[in-house]
């Protein structure tokens, strides 16, 4: 199907979102919660755009481009004054919620609009509730964390804020967090995340910690690869493979 984004005619497949089509055509739409591999949640509202049903339509509707499936003949404007203002408001609100998140402050400065300083949160964390960690955890198959509570009290946590068997301590949530909100403590013996301690698995070759025991069990338990795949760290595996190749070749 055909649609027009910022005056540029674009071709799209049914089921694609405006954001996908825009990015393929190198039209920039800012996002915070969007991730290519994860199901859209439409939480941050930074990616809002104005859409009209067809070229002659007068009434524009503001939609989240990460969720809105394209339609034939759709007219999209990614940077109307209204859209810019809404994005500015979103960033102003997030900046007040997370005064200590430099990523948000930087994005806000880059917008360059008329910023409004809202009352900063006194207990401000760095969490912008983008749900990336929750969705990544779901993708891995653990579902160990979720958004709990409501309204401004909403936060990401394991069930009942307690240790949970579902968590494998893989650290993906922390790695995918755009603001560095999720705390991870690492020692050679253990990794601590979500106030839960995970024993590290030691490499059978060099003895270095290379993943948590629980992660190893999880990966082995997937049944996609043989369990003995997960005994050595990457460096040892490469060293051993080199020795094997040389031996085979001589």
């Amino acid at each position: 199907m055909q649609l027009v984004i910022d005056g540029i005619p674009c071709t799209a497949e049914s089921g694609e979102t405006i954001l996908q089509v825009a990015r393929r055509n190198r039209i920039d739409i800012p996002t915070l919660c969007h991730h290519d591999a994860l199901e859209g949640v439409g939480a941050c509202r930074l990616c809002v755009v104005a859409v009209r049903a067809h070229a002659e339509a007068v009434d524009a509707q503001v939609v989240a481009s990460c969720m809105y499936a394209v339609k034939d003949g759709l007219q999209v404007d990614t940077a109307t004054p209204e859209v810019r203002r809404l994005r500015q408001t979103v960033l102003d609100l997030l900046a007040a919620r997370c005064p200590d998140a430099p990523e948000i402050q930087a994005l806000r400065e880059r917008m360059g609009g008329d910023a409004i300083d809202y009352a900063p949160a006194v207990d401000g964390s760095k969490c912008i509730m983008c749900y990336r960690c929750v969705r990544a955890c779901e993708a891995i198959g653990c579902n160990a964390i979720a958004a709990v509570n409501r309204g401004p009290q909403k936060e990401i946590a394991p069930p009942f804020f307690d240790a949970t068997q579902r968590c494998i301590g893989c650290g993906t949530c922390a790695a995918i967090c755009p603001t560095g909100h999720i705390a991870v403590t690492e020692t050679p013996q253990y990794r601590e995340i979500w106030s839960q301690r995970f024993a590290m698995a030691q490499c059978a070759g060099c003895g270095a910690p290379f993943m948590t025991e629980a992660t190893r069990e999880h990966l082995a338990g997937l049944g996609k690869l043989k369990p003995d795949y997960f005994t050595h760290c990457a460096a040892c595996r490469q060293r051993d493979a080199a020795a094997r190749f040389v031996r085979v070749g001589t």
Binding site: G42, T89, L93, R97, A119, I128, R150, G151
Partner: peptide, 20 residues
């Protein structure tokens, strides 16, 4: 504010600022 599900920024943060 207390009944907002808290999923999207304008409702979660905006309504809280509004109350303020």
């Amino acid at each position: 504010q207390s009944e907002s599900c808290g999923r999207c920024v304008p409702c979660r943060e905006g309504v809280a600022q509004f109350c303020h």
